[in-house]
Design a protein around this nucleic acid. Structure first.
Lengths: 136, 136
DNA sequence: TGAAAACTCTATTAAATTAGTAGGGTAATA
DNA sequence: TATTACCCTACTAATTTAATAGAGTTTTCA
């Protein structure tokens, strides 16, 4: 299940990408328009800023804005930052790999075999979608 | 993230599918060989029996066995029973559909758009894999 | 026939994660 | 210099997951 954090983060990014100009947008504006708790959104935008997706401007007329153009922002990167691993089990994760403590051998594990395919198919989707692609 | 329930359920199914004959296999045997808590596995096998994947035989010499051949068991069905919805958000789920309370319009929602693709790609994988395909 | 083997079922619980809430602090701009 | 708006920490309620405990029932085989 997709976490609210990821869902809200994606919506906020899409909202910023849909702006006609690059002027900073206030948290409160995004929160209202996308029906998100303002405080919760605050923490999500903060993490997107720390990971290089967003810039912010303080003071009057301040807010958040995209640091890159929408077509430069890959869903792969966004998902990894917001949701974490794309794989459903750590033993098939590219960026968050861990061995299973129960499994004696990955190569003969049926779960591993299936989840490898699922990961690859999900990666395919994320790699083929930028922020620009998902705004309408 | 894949739940342990699903992981263990898949492993148990694969274990049964790998049996040379159709004799019932005891819970304890599966639990030991696959490093699964026996009591937890018990409840998982029970749910697989109630959903028509497994049959059971009581008493001495009893245990669980597959009701269908491995190539007749689609990963789509198994995943839906063990893990629940294949979609990451309810608004793109085929079997567990729900509207989002926050989203004003699904058709213009960027999250919806992306998650629809992810669901389809996952479904593709599950539809193309039977229990036979994932045992080695 | 009776005892052991093995499944069945209910209820409880511990741990982890998620989704927020509260509230004060700090920086920048008009 | 006051206001706006971001920044940060800590706490908490709710939910889900992963078991655990224990009693009960059915079946089979000796």
């Amino acid at each position: 299940m997709l976490s609210k954090k990821t869902k809200y983060g994606l919506k906020a990014l899409a909202y910023l990408a849909a702006q006609p100009d690059k002027k900073p947008v206030q948290i409160s504006e995004i929160a209202e328009n996308e029906n998100i708790s303002q405080k919760f959104l605050e923490s999500i935008l903060l993490s997107l800023r720390k990971t290089g997706f967003l810039g912010s401007k303080k003071g009057k007329g301040g807010g958040y804005y995209l640091l890159r153009t929408p077509e430069e922002i890959s869903m792969t990167d966004v998902m990894r930052v917001l949701e974490g691993p794309i794989a459903m089990v750590p033993c098939v994760s590219l960026n968050f790999y861990e061995t299973c403590d129960d499994c004696p051998d990955e190569h003969t594990c049926s779960v591993h075999k299936l989840m490898l395919q699922v990961r690859d198919s999900a990666l395919d989707v994320y790699r083929n979608n930028t922020l620009k692609d998902i705004i309408s």
